[in-house]
Design a protein around this nucleic acid. Structure first.
Length: 824
RNA sequence: GCCCGGAUGGUGGAACCGGUAGACACGGAGGCCUCAAAAGCCUCUGCUCGAAAGGGCGUGAGGGUUCAAGUCCCUCUCCGGGCACCA
């Protein structure tokens, strides 16, 4: 019960009401809406658009807290900040849910989007919602298909046979993610087979070199760039032909006139080739098998074909079982010696030529194979004297190599390639690990691939004026997961746009990574009805100045988006000069719980809603900023709730300090006021720097420290106001409310404070005095003192005299104003 | 196997350029306020010896460079991630 004649109690901070008030205000005032002709310098901040799986989880909260902080900070620094948001709304989970519940993926997806949007709003994270895009918007689908057709015309999209994951139980192709680690289907449990099927591909390999080279200019985490470099996997070497021998011991071979093409990165070691190995699927195999070997070879090939990808990729199996002799020989062109031709499951048809020259002296796999099959080993690089390994892969002078002898690796490679080219048996060659992007999916809930198959005209693109090809709604989802488009006669049957005869529509849909490969370009002018990307708008905003998302997208999404940006530029679909989509990338760490990633499928989500309803969005945001470096993984532990509550307590403490009727003592003493002014300017310096280098955890620590200082020695209005400005991007609601009460107006429309360097300078610093590297005294000194003065002050210390015990120092290292070390 | 990260109090973390190790917070202990509690405020809190003053030890392990090492170099252990027969 309040005592009426007591001093009026400070109004308590009403978290829920205040957060709602400001979220409504920012929305209705359009604080974070921005026009394309805004005169302020442009800055594009983008969080990876999310897959709508329901209300936000902590990973979203973390992502959008960082993103929103940058948006608000940059705005206060005078930029026109583009901050769009959308939803990656196609994909399997919605379709699987539809199969389960009998509903349609669209209403299901739309409901999940509304849930996610509501929690993003509740976080107080601000976007220009006028620019919202969903992957399944008909307009977005239209331009998605339009781009596909331009890629098709340019030969960047093509159809080819590829081995895919086929589930015999479900009668459908599975995405790699649907195949479990043991090689079975996630739904039916059947063993997934590799089947050769006609699929759509994007020719990303055309851009391999540019994708590799342009990584150097990106301000991205080094480890993401490394992952992309490894994924592209550029290897330089040579490709050359080996004649198949028709020698006397090879009379029944039919391959006497054929030759085998091999790729090698070590042409310098060619004199050491003692056998050749082909992939079991190699097309030349039938012509190399002899009557004596046929039975065994066929059995071997049959066994390999039945192996799952997992078994085949395993290094566990005994090497003796992994290969077989064909019965034929090839001629090593370097020394004209015949070498036996083997098949082995570890040679992949999908890389290089599907055939290798084996050099056991300089390749460990070849060494192991040679040992197992009793094949000769010839060293062609001299290992160092102390080398006691098997194959030697390092550099050294060539030996046993005739005209290459004595040359080191680089020279020998060049000379060997020159020789190969002079002999007209091969060429210098670059190979990539990167494969073309298989984009077709035999599923319903994706963007239809806009082509028609005509008996007369073949593959025909859907005319632009008939776009978008939409998904029919009157479909029945089968429990097997087979796409209902296959059974929808109205969708499937159409007429050829060229000849008008009956034709069949493509029923495959696009990989959802296609949608996310250009959405950031569309955001620049998302309602443009003339073209997928408005060039002027893209020139104004692109590239994205700060892209933020999870490390799990380090390779696929970020590689595909880079490819799309380059390809669209080259085809005139977006400005050609925009070669890279994301200038700066930040990858936040994962949130783990009990050692594993926090995720819906693991069932270990801690919903943000419970914190919104108690401590509020500001406290949860502050927690995510404070808990540790943004790039690091964080563990959600039993202690986490207490830390979040601590952040809430800190905001209440801030409220009591800053709310106008506050009873906190004001600094009265002139010296204290002066010192506070300087401390304030130092805080501005410190926090501004920490914002720049993503050190948000220490930025929060700095304002906590400053609050403690204001409680201890009294506050000034200027100190409080400045701290509120610095905190406005971190805890937007409470700072907005306090600012309005203290000053009127809107804190997020204020300019970012700038420190006066003169005032920010320290007046005195603690100089450490060491004797033999151990701290013995601390002296307050002027920051401007010179070496001589520092040394004089240090030597005058009683503690030092005590340590020296009358002896003369042998050396004095003075690093004013911080440290003097006296060496006795 | 190869390529990246990482290891600091009871806990999350700080220390940006080689110069006071442990900022800030959580937890814990004690105190004030209160009839009491909650909330709030204040003090202490790396380990260790000591009543104290003060000393010793201390950043995964071992070596090295340096006046000085959490930070640089070498070797190793453990943990996390990526690629995994790429010729």
């Amino acid at each position: 019960m309040a005592e009426p004649d007591q001093v009026q109690a400070i109004e308590k901070y009403d978290v829920q009401a205040t957060e709602k008030k400001w979220q409504d205000h920012w929305d209705s005032a359009g604080t974070y809406q921005v026009e394309n002709d805004d005169p302020r310098p442009p800055f594009y901040v983008l969080c990876m658009y999310p897959y709508p799986s329901g209300p936000a989880h902590q990973g979203h909260v973390r992502n959008y807290t960082f993103g929103d902080l940058i948006v608000r900070h940059r705005t206060m620094r005078g930029h026109a900040v583009l901050t769009p948001m959308g939803f990656d709304s196609f994909g399997l989970p919605a379709e699987n849910a539809a199969i389960k519940s009998g509903s349609h993926p669209r209403p299901f997806t739309d409901a999940r989007i509304e849930e996610l949007k509501a929690s993003i709003r509740r976080l107080g994270s601000m976007y220009d919602w006028r620019r919202e895009i969903h992957s399944h918007d008909p307009e977005f689908m239209r331009w998605n298909q339009y781009i596909f057709l331009r890629f098709l015309e340019a030969g960047l999209a093509y159809r080819a046979t590829a081995p895919v994951n086929w589930c015999p139980g479900c009668h459908t192709v599975l995405a790699n993610e649907q195949v479990l680690a043991d090689g079975t289907c996630e739904r039916s449990g059947d063993i997934v087979e590799k089947r050769d099927l006609e699929q759509w591909f994007f020719k990303i390999t055309d851009y391999a070199d540019e994708l590799l080279a342009d990584l150097d200019g990106l301000d991205w985490p080094e480890r993401v760039k490394t992952m992309q470099r490894n994924w592209i996997g550029r290897s330089e070497g040579a490709e050359f032909e080996l004649r198949v021998s028709g020698g006397a011991d090879n009379v029944d071979s039919q391959g006497a006139d054929t030759s085998i093409s091999v790729f090698t990165t070590r042409p310098d070691t060619s004199f050491g080739m003692t056998f050749v190995v082909l992939a079991p699927e190699h097309p030349l195999v039938p012509s190399l098998v002899t009557d004596q070997t046929r039975t065994d070879v066929d059995a071997f090939i049959e066994r390999v074909r039945k192996e799952t990808e997992i078994e085949r990729q395993s290094t566990e199996g005994a090497i003796e079982k992994r290969g077989i002799f064909t019965g034929s020989y090839a001629i090593n062109p370097f020394n004209d010696q015949p070498v036996p031709i083997y098949l082995a499951d570890y040679v992949l048809m999908t890389y290089g030529t599907g055939a290798i020259m084996a050099v056991p002296g300089e390749d460990q796999r070849d060494w192991d194979f040679a040992k197992a099959y009793d094949l000769p080993i010839v060293r062609t690089v001299q290992p160092p004297a102390d080398f006691d390994g098997e194959a030697f892969t390092g550099d050294g002078p060539a030996i046993n190599s005739e005209w290459l002898d004595g040359l080191h690796m680089a020279e020998a490679k060049a000379k060997a390639i020159d020789w190969i080219e002079a002999q007209a048996i091969g060429v210098r060659k670059v190979n990539y690990r990167l494969r073309d992007w298989l984009l077709s999916r035999q599923r319903y809930w994706g963007c239809p691939i806009p082509v028609i198959y005509c008996a007369t005209d073949g593959i025909v693109g859907v005319p632009d004026d008939e776009l978008p090809v939409l998904l029919p709604d009157d479909v029945e989802f089968r429990p097997t997961g087979e796409s209902p488009l296959n059974f929808h006669e109205g969708f499937r049957n159409t007429t050829c746009p060229k000849c008008g005869q009956p034709a069949l529509r493509e029923t495959d849909t696009m990989d959802t990574f296609v949608d996310s490969s250009w959405y950031f370009l569309r955001f620049c002018d998302p309602r443009d009805g003339q073209e997928p990307v408005n060039h002027d708008a893209a020139r104004h905003w692109m590239p994205v100045d700060q892209y933020i998302g999870g490390i799990e997208h380090a390779i696929l999404h970020l590689m595909y988006a880079r490819f799309y940006t380059k390809a669209m530029g080259d085809l005139g679909l977006s400005p050609k000069e925009i070669r890279e989509p994301f200038k700066r990338l930040f990858t936040q760490g994962m949130i783990r719980m009990g050692g594993t990633k926090m995720s819906k499928s693991k069932g270990n989500l801690v919903a943000p809603a419970q914190y919104f309803d108690t401590v509020g969005a500001d406290a949860l945001r502050l927690f995510h900023l404070f808990v540790g470096p943004p790039a690091d993984d964080m563990d959600w532990s039993e202690q986490t709730d207490e830390v979040i509550e601590g952040c809430g307590r800190f905001l209440q403490r801030l409220w009591r300090l800053a709310v106008p009727e506050s009873e906190v003592p004001r600094a009265g003493d002139a010296a204290v006021v002066g010192e506070l002014e300087r401390a304030t300017h130092r805080l501005v310096d410190r926090v501004s720097g920490e914002y720049e280098r993503w050190s948000y955890n220490t930025a929060v620590a700095a304002v906590m420290e400053f609050t403690n200082l204001l409680y201890k020695q009294g506050a000034t209005e200027e100190a409080i106001d400045t701290m509120l400005l610095l905190m406005a991007p971190m805890a937007p609601h409470v700072t907005a409310e306090l600012w309005e009460r203290r000053r009127g107006g809107h804190i997020h429309e204020e300019a970012w404070p700038v420190a006066d360097p003169e005032l920010a300078r320290l007046q005195s610093v603690t100089m450490v005095v060491q004797v033999n590297g151990k701290v013995r005294d601390r002296i307050e000194v002027d920051p401007g003192i010179d070496e001589a003065e520092a040394e004089r002050l240090a030597l005058a210390s009683d503690k030092v005299a005590e340590q020296l015990a009358g002896a003369d120092p042998t050396k004095v290292i003075a690093r004013p104003p911080r440290l003097v070390n006296i060496v006795a």
